[in-house]
Design a binder for these strands. Sequence first.
DNA 1: GTCTATATGATGATAGAC
DNA 2: GTCTATCATCATATAGAC
Lengths: 208, 208
Amino acid sequence: MDNTLAMVEGEGRQRILAAAEKLFSAKAFDAVSMNAIACEAGISKANIYHYFPNKDTLYLAVLRVASHNLRAVLNEAVSAHGSVLDVLRHFARNHLQALLNRPQLVRLVWREILERGAPRAQEFAEQGFADMFSALVDVLKLGQSRGEFRQDFDPALVATLLLGANVFFFQSRDILRHYPPITFADDPAGYDAGIVEILLRGLVPASS
Amino acid sequence: MDNTLAMVEGEGRQRILAAAEKLFSAKAFDAVSMNAIACEAGISKANIYHYFPNKDTLYLAVLRVASHNLRAVLNEAVSAHGSVLDVLRHFARNHLQALLNRPQLVRLVWREILERGAPRAQEFAEQGFADMFSALVDVLKLGQSRGEFRQDFDPALVATLLLGANVFFFQSRDILRHYPPITFADDPAGYDAGIVEILLRGLVPASS
DNA sequence: GTCTATATGATGATAGAC
DNA sequence: GTCTATCATCATATAGAC
């Protein structure tokens, strides 16, 4: 069977999705016009409506693909083996690096999280959260069961702290860069190394 | 002199600013129409243009006021006295509570930080960052100079970690709530208490 | 499947009466 | 200072030719 036709059929849809993803990543929903998407995709505006019934459906399709891709990228980045400490350091560094490598995808998904007004698809974002949290919580629990970590802290809280540190770094990087006391704005690996080190050892000197 | 006229003169402007702040806090720039602002303010659309030359200028005015108010709220919340540990705990808890108490202001300012496409006024947001960072860094440095904290960590990095933990909590609260292992989504004070405790003592048991 | 042409409405912004 | 009426522009969305 010749699948050339099917590929050509899908091509138009793919071009539209790619163009829409690029524009929706850069600007908010209402700031992106169907005209701009058509222009970016190199087709006519009316043609978009042949593939997607309306703007909302197109946006949802973009978000679904982006969320899926981002999950894959992040899950791939944080999968690791070795000692608990190595896995933790690896997780932090690679998670942040994955965020920085795919800024458009991250922005697209995070905008959906933050703009609570029009709950278009929080489910996609929540899936990514669940992936990262469960992976990180498992590592921390393993460390606790092995006696390498204290027993008296909540793994979910530490997971939140670490993921939050990376997301915050990703979001605020441009501002952090312009603030003198901060020297790690252009050194994400060093940032996460410092974060993990502090988490492990704490701020207070070991007593007696 | 009768200042009644002046008050009435300013009233129209205030109504517009209040309405615009409410709407711009809930939705993005392009998603808010001048018609909606006029309707919310209870005046005609054309009247807005009597006070503000265009939509951008109005938005900028809203952002300036909001940023100023948010700075005041946050600075008020984190000002404290006492031991270094008390100040640190107080800072974390009250900073997060201040964010949660003024969600509209926070959203308005943070949207400006995240939407890098149209750099309308990053300066406002950066001022707030500088306030919080310098205050927190000062506390940490004081702890170091007093010998209550280790000397070998970067105060700016810990400040980023703590502020990031609060901002991340604020942003992701709705998602955190729906994730089973997390029990602190509705307990910001407990969250920050846990955060600070982990930062102070570390994850690894005190060796020997 | 892709296009041109167009219907319909909302947008930001202006002019001028009161 | 506030309004009604209106501007040109651009949006989403549809119809129909090829």
